[in-house]
Design a protein around this nucleic acid. Structure first.
Lengths: 258, 258
DNA sequence: CAGATTTGTCTATTGATATAGACGACTATA
DNA sequence: TATAGTCGTCTATATCAATAGACAAATCTG
């Protein structure tokens, strides 16, 4: 059984991670990804020095300057700190594990992983439901809905960016409640909803666009995980339609027993 | 509230999707992503012509040649077909929706979305459990495990690439069973396992590496969704540890009520 | 202190990426 | 059969990405 990866004549060092050339994704971006992944999976311990630049260059089969480009992107992002003469150190903790399940709640989900976490209400508006929002909420297209734009932060770093839609006729004032409480769960409680479930979630991934970069403080070329979900009451009434974006380099999604 | 996205002096057409320059991801790759996304979400209908190159160039704020680079990548990938004098046409269907749930089975999951689907056993081997595999299966590190490398295909296109590990002492010969039946479920049935559940799944996303590109027939720069899962018997015994990769441009994951 | 190690900066060169403009080839339609 | 619309190809130029080599600056160790 031939292995396609064993390309003709190409030497493949045992330690060499694979890098794609002329790919549309620059080498420094690919290497930055790999370093992030290595940190997230514990290969490079927190507060420890990375291997020196020359070693990384050899490991990935690129020039030292290319490694430096990758490192400087991660330094700018607050993941690494480089110190002349000493080395380059891992600042950032491992990837946070965001639970997804029938009763996912932001506030409790990251407990134990981040000492501080909260949701910021960025904006709210009343608008007419688009096709997909209307369908998700079981409303007619064009019905009035309230949209809440929020950002989740953990230890001062953005970990999610979400838009949530609610039936405007039923949840009048939920924007004010959200601004006051900083919690979707608490806001819904004011409308007599003390429990709700995730009905369905669809998950995809794409490159971050300009809005994602600004909202999530990412570097260009980063990847975002996108979830589109409908929350329902225990008796099956849809109450919330939402689209969330997570920076793939900082968050992994843990699908818990649902 | 200032909007960072409104860059100084730069004109931003109302229809212009956001594109990041000097990002480490080339413009043609970003535009290819956007076109794929537009197809997946139904903006460009199947068998219909895309807007002409000049229109796309204006829409994304780039040169026509840059759009052509994006299109030619998608043509190579079999997503589009360009016809001189006529236009550029969408060949490929929408993104498939792969269900993830407690009882996810490849064979049934894509029913109705693809007329033909099957799993190919690419390779199998016996090896010593790594730290994470051992932990997932509840074995001692270094215990003998059987690894199955598989690829899932739907309508002739690769949609998943997975490695699955089983306790070698309990599932001796599962590789042969898999080769014969082409189904994990059927193979496990031979060992008296007629039901199993997903215990936990961790989900992340990253750029495809060289192996992914070859296995999934992707173009460089593509994104893969990665799931790491443990399957257990109804009474809680771990039987399978697996890592799967899905091409984000062809697959979305639907987390069903579990 | 001397030497080794490691990050920081500089110059130079090559190839890929992106823009710009012009024109040819093919198709559809009035 | 004109003409307009669209994709295909070519040339030229500017910028970014990547390689290469050299040396400076800071830190650590013996």
């Amino acid at each position: 059984m031939d292995d396609k990866r064993q390309k003709a004549g190409q030497f493949m060092a045992v330690t060499a991670d694979s890098i794609e050339r002329r790919s549309g994704v620059s080498l420094w971006r690919q290497i930055a990804d790999k370093i992030l992944h290595a940190i997230a999976s514990g290969d490079f311990a927190e507060n420890e020095a990375l291997p020196p630049e020359v070693a990384l260059a050899e490991r990935y089969g690129v020039n030292r300057h290319t490694v430096r480009s990758a490192i400087s992107a991660l330094v700018q992002e607050g993941i690494l700190r480089a110190e002349q003469g000493r080395g380059t150190f891992v600042l950032s903790r491992k990837r946070l594990s965001y639970p997804i399940g029938a009763r996912t709640r932001f506030s409790t989900g990251l407990q134990g992983q981040a000492s501080e976490r909260h949701i910021v209400l960025l904006a709210s508006s009343v608008e007419q439901a688009s096709q997909r929002v209307a369908k998700g909420l079981g409303l007619a297209k064009g019905a009035e809905v309230i949209r809440l734009e929020t950002r989740g932060e953990a230890d001062g770093r953005p970990v999610s960016r979400a838009a949530a839609w609610f039936d405007a006729s039923r949840f009048t004032g939920i924007d004010a409640a959200m601004a006051e409480t900083g919690s979707i769960t608490a806001s819904l409680a004011r409308f007599g909803i003390d429990d709700y479930l995730m009905q369905s979630t669809v998950l995809s991934a794409r490159h971050a666009d300009a809005a994602d970069l600004a909202d999530l403080e990412l570097q260009p070329g980063a990847i975002v995980l996108v979830t589109v979900a409908v929350n329902i009451t225990p008796d099956g009434q849809p109450i919330q339609f939402s689209e969330s974006r997570f920076p793939a380099e900082r968050i992994e999604l843990k699908l818990s027993a649902l």
